[in-house]
């Protein structure tokens, strides 16, 4: 057994929250440059240039990339030979969020109840998913998930008869309906298979893969490439002003499913794709 004290988790989460909102990952910055090399639309190019400038300002002037500093979604991979000491794991994560958002001048965007809608004031609680895995480390994968794009996420249960072509058409339909509302260029996290909730979880987790990296499954990789090309032929473009860059990436995770089912969940992510991870 290896002990991991909650104070280390609090500090790590606090730093991840601040860094995610101020310092876009290099895969995102490369995506802006790749898009600028192919984008034909002047309005689209101007948006992409502004977003690059925005990322630079966020990093150097410590102003959040987007005013919606997100709902913290935290995937935890807890080694089965690790032992969390000093308190509860979820309380430590939420304390890290509280400190990160308060001390980092990040926006409080969470209400305590979907009905009375009173703001909690410190962006807590986070949405926490824990997987127990082999090993003695604790991996924190954190995303600051924007609300505008999350609101365009969708789920559909297809029939096996609708098959792969049905899945493709549904994913492209999700891009169309998200359109300018979700701040394109978009990134789509797609979960195919499993059950209702498994597909949704996979769709979130899929977003953590490095943008531009191939899917380890060559069949799914070909599907992603085809869908990204088709999404970028829709013409929606950066911010929906028209153009060739509607999506930066489509990341698919799959899971076995029941003989009756073909569940597909699509998490819509905006260009403010703020994610960070650390292993303790």
């Amino acid at each position: 057994m290896r002990d991991i004290h909650t104070s280390a988790i609090v500090d790590a989460v606090k730093k991840l929250c601040m860094d995610a909102n101020l310092d876009l990952e290099p895969d995102m910055l490369r995506a802006f440059d790749r898009a600028l090399a192919t984008e034909r639309s002047p309005a689209g190019r101007q948006v992409l240039q502004t977003l690059k400038q925005n990322a630079e300002m966020a990093r150097t002037q410590r102003i959040p990339y987007c005013q919606d500093t997100g709902f913290v979604v935290c995937f935890v991979e807890l080694g089965q030979d690790a032992h969390v000491t000093g308190g509860a794991l979820d309380a430590a994560i939420n304390e890290g969020v509280r400190q990160g958002y308060t001390e980092g001048y990040l926006r409080a965007s969470i209400v305590r109840s979907p009905f009375d809608r009173v703001n909690t004031g410190d962006n807590t609680p986070a949405v926490i998913h824990v997987d127990v895995v082999p090993g003695a480390t604790l991996k924190l994968m954190l995303m600051a998930k924007g609300g505008g794009c999350e609101n365009r996420s969708k789920y559909r249960m297809l029939t096996p008869a609708e098959g792969t072509s049905g899945v493709k058409e549904w994913i492209l339909e999700c891009v169309r309906t998200a359109g300018p509302d979700a701040c394109p260029p978009l990134i789509l996290g797609v979960g195919v298979g499993g059950t209702f909730e498994k597909a949704a979880l996979l769709s979130k987790k899929a977003l953590f893969r490095e943008l531009g990296s191939p899917n380890p499954d060559p069949v799914v990789d070909a599907l992603e490439t085809e869908l990204l090309d088709r999404a970028n032929r829709l013409g929606i473009g950066p911010q929906g002003y028209g153009g060739d860059t509607t999506a930066f990436g489509i990341h698919i995770l799959t899971y076995p499913c029941h003989i009756t089912s073909l569940p597909v969940a699509v998490t819509i992510e905006c260009h403010a794709h703020r994610h960070k991870e650390v292993t303790l």
Binding site: T50, Q53, N54, M57, Q61, C66, C183, Q239, C270
Partner: peptide, 13 residues
């Protein structure tokens, strides 16, 4: 009018 969504740092200036 549309402003550029997600360009909050740039727009602050």
């Amino acid at each position: 009018f549309g402003a550029i969504g997600g360009a909050g740092a740039v727009l602050s200036q």
